[in-house]
Amino acid sequence: MNLARFLLKRSIHGLFVVWGVVTVAFLLRFIAPGDVISVVAPIDATPEIRQALADELGLHKPLYIQYFDYLVNLLQGDMGYSYISNTEARTRIFARLPATLELAFAGTIVAIVLSIPLGVLSATRRHTPADHGATLFSLLGISTPNFWLGIMLVLIFAVQLSIFPTSRRPVGLNVAMASLLFELNVNPLLQWVHHITLPAITLGTYFTALITRLTRSEMLDELGKIYIDAVRAKGIPEVLVQYRHALRNALIPVITVLGLQLGTVIGGAVITEAVFSWPGLGTLIINAVNARDWPVIQGSLIVIGAGFVIVNIVVDALYASLNPEIDNE
């Protein structure tokens, strides 16, 4: 099976996963406590007004008809209208999505930059203070709740030391990059980095600890294999042995975990956004849940689910390119 066929197979699987997410998101409205009409209608609405609202929203139709209509509307890009703002749910969701993607991207970069060198150092300096320090850091990172770490970082670096701001997203990454490329103005990018540093560290810490431990384990496994001894016997410098040969093969499961942990990153982003008042999708979901704004809730869950599937397909492509035997499975 070639790579294109392998990815086609994964894409078909992904479509079924997205369909499952859509189905679950649709059913949540009927499973969760509370009445949609009570959210939309005025407090003093008469039964006639409530019935008219139910007819307008299509809630009087059988469940399977509502489900079919929902699927048809989704295929046309229609996620419905927000019950609270009476604006398109799609517009509200995609307006907030860049902020969440920026935070997830920054958190992932923090994790990769810190974890892979730490994992390699820990594996190549086994049973030394460096190894023990990296292991202790991993244990602390996995054990520390995101919300507590975020609050502590705000108290120390924002309130006490006044190094970083407590919250806010003054400019988007796209605007910052456009200013850098077309106006040669680096200030917006520096401002973006300044504001996203604490949220990114908060989000990336758990991720960093996990990848550090995984990189260490995989590096130890690779360094103990026969081909490494053969490479060393050729007189190749130890740095190249570690990074060009051992690390390349050790990164295969690491890349897989990076993709699979996207859900954890986005889940952590919800809490992190709340701590730092970051105007992303997580904050939007929390506000929508409090207001029972189901079109926004459902649309947000679908976008997150579809993003998860897309990232996993990309991970599969990287995995197959690093290990060509995978696409034959």
Rank of each mutant, 00 (worst) to 15 (best):
I163D: 00
F164M: 04
S167P: 08
S167E: 02
R168Y: 10
R168A: 06
P170A: 08
P170T: 00
P170E: 15
P170F: 05
V171K: 04
G172M: 14
G172A: 09
L173Y: 03
L173Q: 07
V175Y: 06
M177H: 08
A178E: 11
S179P: 00
L181C: 00
F182P: 02
F182I: 03
F182D: 10
E183V: 10
L184V: 00
N187L: 15
L190F: 15
W192R: 03
V193E: 01
V193Y: 01
I196T: 02
P199T: 03
A200C: 08
A200S: 10
I201Q: 13
L203C: 10
T205G: 01
F207K: 11
A209Q: 01
L210H: 07
T215Q: 14
T215W: 10
T215I: 00
S217H: 12
M219I: 07
D221H: 09
E222F: 02
E222C: 06
G224P: 13
G224R: 08
K225N: 13
I226M: 05
Y227P: 00
Y227T: 01
I228L: 02
I228Q: 04
D229W: 02
V231C: 12
V231F: 04
R232L: 13
A233C: 12
K234M: 08
G235L: 08
V239H: 12
V239D: 06
Q242T: 15
Y243M: 08
H245E: 04
L247S: 10
R248M: 15
N249K: 09
N249V: 13
A250K: 11
P253K: 12
T256S: 12
L258S: 15
L258W: 13
L260M: 13
G263H: 06
G263L: 10
G267T: 08
G267N: 07
G268W: 03
G268M: 11
A269D: 10
A269W: 11
